[in-house]
Design a binder for these strands. Sequence first.
DNA 1: CATGAATGAGACTTCATTCAT
DNA 2: CATGAATGAAGTCTCATTCAT
Lengths: 190, 190, 190, 190
Amino acid sequence: MPRTKEQVEEIRRKRVRQIMDAGLNVFAHKGFHSATIAEIAHQAGIAKGLIYNYFTSKEELLYQLIVDGLNTLIEKFDENQDGVLTNTEMEFFINDMFRKIVENRAYWKLYFSVMLQPDVFSKNIFVKLEEAYAPMVSILVEYFRRNGFANPEMEFQILHALSDGIIINYLVNDDFPLDEIKRELIKRYV
Amino acid sequence: MPRTKEQVEEIRRKRVRQIMDAGLNVFAHKGFHSATIAEIAHQAGIAKGLIYNYFTSKEELLYQLIVDGLNTLIEKFDENQDGVLTNTEMEFFINDMFRKIVENRAYWKLYFSVMLQPDVFSKNIFVKLEEAYAPMVSILVEYFRRNGFANPEMEFQILHALSDGIIINYLVNDDFPLDEIKRELIKRYV
Amino acid sequence: MPRTKEQVEEIRRKRVRQIMDAGLNVFAHKGFHSATIAEIAHQAGIAKGLIYNYFTSKEELLYQLIVDGLNTLIEKFDENQDGVLTNTEMEFFINDMFRKIVENRAYWKLYFSVMLQPDVFSKNIFVKLEEAYAPMVSILVEYFRRNGFANPEMEFQILHALSDGIIINYLVNDDFPLDEIKRELIKRYV
Amino acid sequence: MPRTKEQVEEIRRKRVRQIMDAGLNVFAHKGFHSATIAEIAHQAGIAKGLIYNYFTSKEELLYQLIVDGLNTLIEKFDENQDGVLTNTEMEFFINDMFRKIVENRAYWKLYFSVMLQPDVFSKNIFVKLEEAYAPMVSILVEYFRRNGFANPEMEFQILHALSDGIIINYLVNDDFPLDEIKRELIKRYV
DNA sequence: CATGAATGAGACTTCATTCAT
DNA sequence: CATGAATGAAGTCTCATTCAT
């Protein structure tokens, strides 16, 4: 008896998940070029060839991983989307951000690797990124303005750079005092 | 009649410079794995094989580039080494840092790529790095203490992360307002 | 539908055979270093890369060829393994030995090449060799003793050296009178 | 002041000697293909390029080494060339042969390696070899005839093969009892 | 006569991707 | 939908040989 359409869809969803999990893991540990399709397949528990039933190429898999990760981040942020950030929400936002850093280590590693190797794929990821960040930008700038920061736009740039730096330091340095830094940020910004 | 030892040394110095310049450039643009020895040689204007008269492997070339870059950075810093940083010197330090960011774009790209791909080479570059940073750490911490910062060590960590983040944003984003950020930092720290 | 495990195994067995046949042939004619993977693949009728699905390296292929050859030789000898050699069996043994020389020309060429180039691989092949020969040694020494040879151990050494010399002469010299020599040996030892 | 012709000749002789000594050594230890011109030059204490002032190629150097070695062997043998071998002379001959084996280990290694790799150079070395051996053959056959061996030609073939085998075993096996074997040969043939 | 930097062909090996089953 | 054998392009590195000095 042939499989029903639903069963097929279910299988496909599951396979995509397996492959993306394995892909994220291997890419993050090895970097894009050192990661091999063979290892990803092995870690996903499937045959090499099957990956090409779901992704047209190794690059496409990377691209999907990045996009998927971005979407996840945006999604979460959209939840408290009412345009203004109270002080309590700002504290929640910072806590949430740090939680995401810890929970998505592999993703961040991948993210920054890709950022620094523009040959991997064209600027179009940056566009997507910009879109993702856009609402966050205005809300945070507004927050800084309301809380008396002299130069809110600048403050956003600094917070952005600082966040990137914190993530990188955390990724690279096992002893990085993430929690202390978080408390300091809350003290400073809330 | 064979060349004199001086002539040979001169040639070798020149070639090493050519290869390292080309190597830094190609590695920075393509990343370690996508960069090819063929392209580095081509850009250096020499034959592929000659690179191996000067560096034992592609990895060794990368390693030398990183070490060389680090040494350059340290060297400069050692100059005002009298153990304390006056306010004027702190301003000079920040200006100097930003100047180095702009002047060594390729180096910084390489540097962060390598940081994020631990498979490229083992931890031993991190040790060198730590050594390089050590004197800077204590001097800056001392500076923050004298200037009334509540938690000088933490402040150093934050400045460090912020610097990394600024560099990354500058590398990736052509419109990044480096100068404004610099002025802000001086305002904040001096 | 994927191939069954049996089909895959069958293919793999066949390919290993193809590669080893081609490898033995090319190694024997060219020597290890002059033999190229490209030529072995060509002679096996497959693509270069496929060899690496079956052997981890050129050296590994050589190693397997030597071990495989040794095992074949030992196997056969173990058959009449009852500890003593009658005169008839001794005659049979010598006949068998000469038959193997003719049938495995390529193997012997490889074997002696490898013996004389210790850099190809470490002593560990010699250990295997010694093990392979051990039972033969004692049986032959015993045979010489029972047949009144004054110094049986010495006689074994001489027979051993003589065999090596005969093989080498046969390999190198197309006119070498292998059969006459065989008859002479039988006359002398049986 | 320019060098005189004699001085130049002297230098050339010395250089040739240096190169051939180094060449024999390196070829014997590494085999023809693994030996590098760089290492030979280094061991000879000269620059790579200089080798090409004296030998047209790596192969030519090998060829000269083999030929030179053969000539040395022949030369010595020609000395007692009066056509017949007394028993005393036969004993001397065997002793001499074994002495040469020990003294020219490197040469023998090279010799047998080359024998087994016919691609290294064409048959023309075999022709030279044959010439070299020719007088020895008839004298030994004659000796065997006078001493009542039933089949003198066969006996020569066996002695020849045995000698080859002894050398190979000695080259490969550090514990090979060369002296005992020599005494046994003398006992048997004299 | 002597040096060693320079060349470039060619070897081994890897791995994304295809495709017969 | 799934497998994994097979391909072949591409990359790193070696080294005999040349040649300017």
